[in-house]
């Protein structure tokens, strides 16, 4: 095991991981993708998607292949399908999978962090309180804040 299971301090799931963490970064601006990639390097394997639609496709594919994403970082403002919609779709897919018992017992739901700009906290708070996402961070991304959040929730040591 790469790291032992840790009970989370906040409301994150307990994680028992034997392989590398699967991370999905959903961001349409390449420079910001790069930044996020840099922050999360070494904590898992990183995939990227440029918009909500691509993200949902990748997410569902991973679910179907029995190797779902552990962590998703998703910008709210994106073309084609925005973050909020994508979030809804992802959670819907998870529910479907678990109902059909296609989700292994030890795999909990993905930890999804929304990335928002300071001007639009209302949107994020809504998503957060409705229990769909696990947290949010604001742009410009503070790497320490992000890592602290992940640490607090037992995703990284």
């Amino acid at each position: 095991m790469r790291y032992s299971a840790k009970p989370s301090k906040k409301n994150g799931p307990e994680r028992l991981r034997e392989e590398k963490m699967k991370i999905l970064i959903v961001e349409d601006q390449l420079s910001i993708q790069e930044k996020l990639r840099f922050v999360l390097e070494g904590h898992g394997s990183i995939d990227t998607a440029l918009n909500g639609r691509e993200a949902v496709e990748a997410f569902c594919r991973a679910l179907a292949n029995r190797s779902p994403y552990d962590l998703v970082l998703m910008d709210i403002q994106m073309p084609e399908m925005d973050g909020q919609t994508a979030l809804k779709e992802m959670r819907k897919a998870e529910v479907t999978m678990s109902k059909a018992n296609l989700l292994s017992w030890d795999k909990k739901l993905a930890f999804i962090v929304m990335v928002t700009s300071l001007e639009d906290p209302g949107n994020c708070m809504e998503a957060y309180f409705k229990g769909r996402c696990n947290g949010y961070i604001t742009k410009p991304v503070d790497s320490r804040e992000l890592l602290d959040k992940l640490r607090d929730n037992g995703l990284i040591p």
């Binding site: 349409d28 601006q29 420079s31 910001i32 790069e34 930044k35 403002q77 073309p79 700009s117 742009k139 410009p140």
Partner: peptide, 14 residues
């Protein structure tokens, strides 16, 4: 609005 917002984010990154 959308594009300016996106561009703003990128510029912030550098």
């Amino acid at each position: 609005f959308e594009v300016a917002h996106a561009l703003k984010g990128c510029c912030g990154a550098v």
